[in-house]
Design a protein around this nucleic acid. Structure first.
Lengths: 348, 348
DNA sequence: CTGAAAGCGCTTACAG
DNA sequence: CTGAAAGCGCTTACAG
């Protein structure tokens, strides 16, 4: 990393503005902050001079002095065609409305998240919002003990002082199960992601528990990735089954898998005649003509606004732990909303 | 914006670490920067103490002293299911590899971009990368004159000292035209976005110029938005045409329009028998089974790496304008790459 | 209403 | 090798 940035003509400071406006440096500061007394006309003059020179206060220096940087660390990962882009978009909007600036920490893979979390500490942000990877208790602790907030989206925060908002994945799985059960389906299949993935596993488990509670059997197929391609692969595996042994009810723990599965079955299996299919996420594509997938919408708006509430509360409490918190490890659930479309039978 | 953040126990400083390690404050700084002499054992001890306390250097204070914040401002907008999420993902990855931190400026709409650009100046970032909205010359000037770099992606930077990398949209349009012409198509339609949109207009114009150069006629339909829904609306309009008057070659200036158009035509018009269709962007969905859209891939990797090159050069030149630059207003083109799939005839 | 001074938390010459 | 001091660019009491 060469830098060699010299203090060129670019380093204009409030001092230069003060000189040009023939006032003290303190006054130009007051002209910008609005704090402290200053004659309106002086203020106008200073603002004009500053504009001419093209100067505005150095936000870093200001943060230094005030001891507070209007920054929030956001940990994210690859924005594939994915639910994650929507999450980030909502989050960025909320942060913007807060008048805070998101400092992005981008992970290529989940195992980089811990390092990024550590790195974020140096920036003295107001707090951090995690949307990728797993959170270690000691990291959350390090951040919270600095008086910063810590919010996790769709993953456990693993700390009682933190805030975690997640879709009620287990419930979603159970809802999917009862829907398929009510249709009279009997041979159940779950297509899911890696065994250790948090949300998909909860969805799968919720589904399986509900199916088994009715005395029915259910199979799971795990996939390395949860992509369209993996969904297609599942379709191939499905088609390789003897016709009589094929499941007639499939729950995909995300929409990408479901869409790929549909594509792989296209022209060979009729949905929902031969089988019913339910996904999870409600991707934009799930509502498109060739798919019309029954799926669950995660209430992103609600989730983000809950984070906003938490952060506001945290700011009011000035970083102290919320005493009213019935510390369920900080985990809060939102109900996923079923979106009925054409991959399940209409008469529900 | 209430803040009221008090200097609680969170405000640990290098001084506290120094005290605990029984050394001067300067030494703990040296332990972390690696600059200046320090006994290896002293360093180890300090690092250990710091870790116990949970302290690490305040990045803001460091930037203050060094006069250089490892920050880059990235201006973006809503990450709908869209090409933009891919752009941002690539960009974030590049910035990360640079060991810089992206400070995100999020615009809800294009007209907010100018304000964000102004706001970015206060952060004294190394530079700014714009991926949304229009750039005003004076803003680019304000940023460049501060010694910062200024890069625009898929839009004009409107300043000779700036860098702008864009797909050669005009060429893409022309390529689409020759492909359809070579197929023997005769009735050409362009479906595009708003009249004043930059890239889509260039694509449309490139297409139309090439068609007209062959003495053929071509119609354009403009849309307020460039979405799936707008594409469907175009399909309805298409179907409302008397069969004999229907175009047999359609160029959509982005994939979303093309995909929506296909969905609207599904079961009524056969592609590519009745008409050929070409899009632009190569969205992930464009390769999915129900679409298989012929389209143009924008060479994102190349575009981002060109930005990286520019920034590296800029850093070497220390913010001075590149004298070797044959100032074409800083605009550099990348060739879009045609991806032939099934919405055009195979034998090209 | 205005200015001189202290101080935010660091880094980096400069002495020792 | 270590420490005391100056200074980064601001904001904010404190005097005037």
């Amino acid at each position: 990393m060469t830098n060699g940035k010299s203090k060129g003509p670019g380093s204009v400071t409030s001092r230069d503005v003060a000189k040009a406006a023939k006032v003290s440096q303190a006054l130009v500061s007051r002209a910008f902050t609005g704090h402290g007394r200053i004659a309106p006309e002086t203020r106008e003059r200073i603002l004009k001079v500053a504009d001419d020179i093209g100067w505005q206060p150095n936000a870093l220096a200001r943060s230094m002095v005030t001891g507070d940087a209007p920054l929030v660390a956001v940990i994210t990962t690859r924005l594939h065609f994915d639910w994650r882009a929507q999450v980030l978009s909502h989050l960025l909007k909320a942060v913007q409305e807060w008048h805070l600036k998101p400092l992005l920490f981008y992970a290529e893979s989940d195992d980089q998240v811990d390092r990024l979390l550590e790195e974020s500490i140096g920036w003295r942000t107001r707090g951090v919002i995690v949307t990728a990877g797993n959170v270690q208790t000691k990291r959350a602790e390090a951040i919270l003990s600095g008086g910063r907030f810590f919010a996790a989206l769709n993953r456990p925060a693993n700390h009682p002082g933190a805030f975690s908002i997640a879709t009620d994945n287990t419930r979603g799985g159970a809802t999917a199960a009862s829907l398929l059960l009510a249709e009279g389906r009997r041979r159940f299949l779950v297509i899911s992601g890696p065994q250790d993935s948090w949300a998909p596993s909860l969805r799968a488990n919720g589904f399986m528990a509900a199916i088994r509670a009715q005395g029915e059997a259910v199979t799971v197929w795990h996939n390395e990735t949860m992509t369209i391609e993996a969904g297609k692969d599942c379709a191939s595996a499905f088609l390789a089954l003897p016709a009589g042994a094929r499941p007639d009810a499939v729950f995909a723990t995300n929409d990408a898998l479901a869409l790929g599965f549909m594509d792989g079955l296209r022209g060979k299996v009729s949905i929902p005649d031969d089988l019913s299919l339910i996904g999870f996420d409600n991707l934009p594509a799930s509502s498109w003509t060739p798919y019309q997938l029954t799926t669950f919408e995660q209430p992103l708006d609600e989730m983000v606004s809950r984070i906003v509430d938490y952060v506001n509360l945290h700011q009011q409490l000035d970083g102290r732990h919320d005493p009213t918190r019935t510390s369920d490890n900080g985990l809060v659930h939102c109900s996923p909303k079923i979106i009925l479309r054409s991959t399940t039978k209409a008469d529900q």
